[in-house]
Design a binder for these strands. Sequence first.
DNA 1: GATGAATGAGTTTTCATTCAT
DNA 2: AATGAATGAAAACTCATTCAT
Lengths: 215, 215, 215, 215
Amino acid sequence: MSYLRSPERQRQILSCARKVFAERGFHGANVSHICAEAGIGRGTLYLYFENKRAVLVAILEDLVSRVKALMARRHIPRIPREAAKALTRDQIVAFSEGRLAELLGVVFSDQQTLRIVLREAVGLDVDIDKILATMDATLISIVERDLIAARDELGLVRDGIDLHHVATMVVGGVEKLALAALRGDIASDLPALIRSVVQFHLYGTMKPQAEGGVA
Amino acid sequence: MSYLRSPERQRQILSCARKVFAERGFHGANVSHICAEAGIGRGTLYLYFENKRAVLVAILEDLVSRVKALMARRHIPRIPREAAKALTRDQIVAFSEGRLAELLGVVFSDQQTLRIVLREAVGLDVDIDKILATMDATLISIVERDLIAARDELGLVRDGIDLHHVATMVVGGVEKLALAALRGDIASDLPALIRSVVQFHLYGTMKPQAEGGVA
Amino acid sequence: MSYLRSPERQRQILSCARKVFAERGFHGANVSHICAEAGIGRGTLYLYFENKRAVLVAILEDLVSRVKALMARRHIPRIPREAAKALTRDQIVAFSEGRLAELLGVVFSDQQTLRIVLREAVGLDVDIDKILATMDATLISIVERDLIAARDELGLVRDGIDLHHVATMVVGGVEKLALAALRGDIASDLPALIRSVVQFHLYGTMKPQAEGGVA
Amino acid sequence: MSYLRSPERQRQILSCARKVFAERGFHGANVSHICAEAGIGRGTLYLYFENKRAVLVAILEDLVSRVKALMARRHIPRIPREAAKALTRDQIVAFSEGRLAELLGVVFSDQQTLRIVLREAVGLDVDIDKILATMDATLISIVERDLIAARDELGLVRDGIDLHHVATMVVGGVEKLALAALRGDIASDLPALIRSVVQFHLYGTMKPQAEGGVA
DNA sequence: GATGAATGAGTTTTCATTCAT
DNA sequence: AATGAATGAAAACTCATTCAT
């Protein structure tokens, strides 16, 4: 028995639960597993959370709030259009990479949360789905906002693109890469991954010459 | 009650299970639900499947085999490099759209299977994960093969791109769009979605002029 | 494992539960106790009853329906008022004793049910309370109906009596006697008890001379 | 927080527990409920009572001791037999009503205790049952002693009556009336109820003429 | 082959009680 | 003396699976 103040104990349980859920999945994890991990009695968990599901919800909402905080914090740098025109390709790439790294840093700050969001929390129940949808929507809107700014203020974006679709695909693509990395299907070389993402979403796959050579 | 020979009955159970799993999720669905849907007794299911999990596995493996069949069937059209150079932008787009539509047609032939793959089968257990990973890998390798062919045989692909990463992102992006459509966050207008995907992955987001204007 | 048809199994569980509840009380009795007594698995009980509480409710409602059946069955014998006047004291006593014995026969047909009604089902929850109240009300109204008939049709009842109060007291008195008998505080000599009840409720305690001698 | 010496604090807890038990029943009431009501910490209760059950026992024993005190206090007024013969019917009734009111005053001094005795403490465990049995026995013996006195010293009681049975029925009848009043089935008009009880137990239900007219 | 009654392992959850502070 | 955080025993209940019919 160790006496901890409420908020610390709550955080401790949360972090142990994160670990356990990531390792065993939501259904594979017992309340007992979590409590053993946290070194507390089984009843203690119920002093801090209504039930097992509420622990997961807390983990997810914690992440959502971090993502929303990011969105609130981040503002589009105001560059005059003239200056925008003078941006080099490398400057644009570098800026995009920075933005993306920032985003990924918050979302996938730890592998455990990543695993939980992408795998353990999926398909559990309607309310949890709503939280995941909120997170998706927030992530997507962050990317979309950047794209809209790049289009409207910097004039950098190709015409006739549905930016919401694109933002959705960017987030989905990033998550799939992350999942593949989690599975060990591809190397977890974050900078390389980020470079791939940025290159891909800026330029697409088609050779400029090919494009250029087209009537 | 009704006399169906083994294979038909098996298929019938499978299709009822698909419906039930899609509607209620793997954990939310009882064996009873499936059997009621199929109009058979609870024990009968066990004549055809070892257990509940095996039913889901069968659904997934059925999909995997359809995807693999697609991969085996599909071969890259051999176009002489010279001809490739003469391809118009619209021809490339049209061809890509066709390929993608074909792919999506197999994978997401029905909303039920889609839902199961993207939501209900996620995070269940290690073996099911392996199946999902196999499907991901197969899908990705289909896209990747197309990309490799476009690069190596047609010379259409930009240099310095990690095509495995790109293929992964394309699949991930498509799935995220599908998920958003399932959730009702975006319109389920398949042709429009396919167009977005193809435009995005061919050209990326950056304006050609912007790119062109860079030193 | 023994295969019983639904209704028999249900009745068997009910009768075992009656025994177990009577012996150990509602809270003292486990579902396991009941199942062990019935020689069935723990889950089997839940095929027949929604939960432990529902088993008790079924026991009580079974009794209520027997009591209500008695009330429906029983009709007041129509005796012309003239004939009523000619009834001897012993005839009235004998008739009352018969009626009471009939009532007790249904209600307290077995000690187990009696114990459950008087002790184990008391104070459990609002709905069970309602059932007990219904039973009380039915018993009381049976007695009251007899009293009203004796008053209105036979003219046998003293003036200025609140017959509902009296009926309530009769039922309460009988139950207290039964409880005392259950506890072993008084002899379980049913005929003697019935005689006491009838004498008491017909004549009261006061000596007729005493009454007669009053101005 | 508030400084109360042991005995007052004990009494305070007891009175809060009485309220809580009456409102929620023994099983429905948490130790927390009681402590919250008393404005003390959860551990504090255990400084004054061994456990939850002990609190209920204390409430009941307090009542038992009040009832026993009544019994000890109450003595039969010595009236010469001659004087007894001269008692009017109204005098006897008035006296009986007084005695009964006195009894009820102690037992059911408050609705809370009444509810606990009649509903919440019933069927809990063997020891509590013994206390309730003691209370029943004491109440019954008080009534019985009055009846014996009325018979042996005043000669007011009809022959051939088992006074223990009668006393038991009187107590049972009174309790059933009280229960019905608690339930709202009958009006809680104490004087009217007392009158009904006294009339009934003195005179019974049968019309004197009817009785008189019998051979 | 088909059935569905029976099973019981496995989990969540509650709450009286303890004891470090 | 007072507290309330921590405990864990105890119990209800679900549901995939078995197997007598």
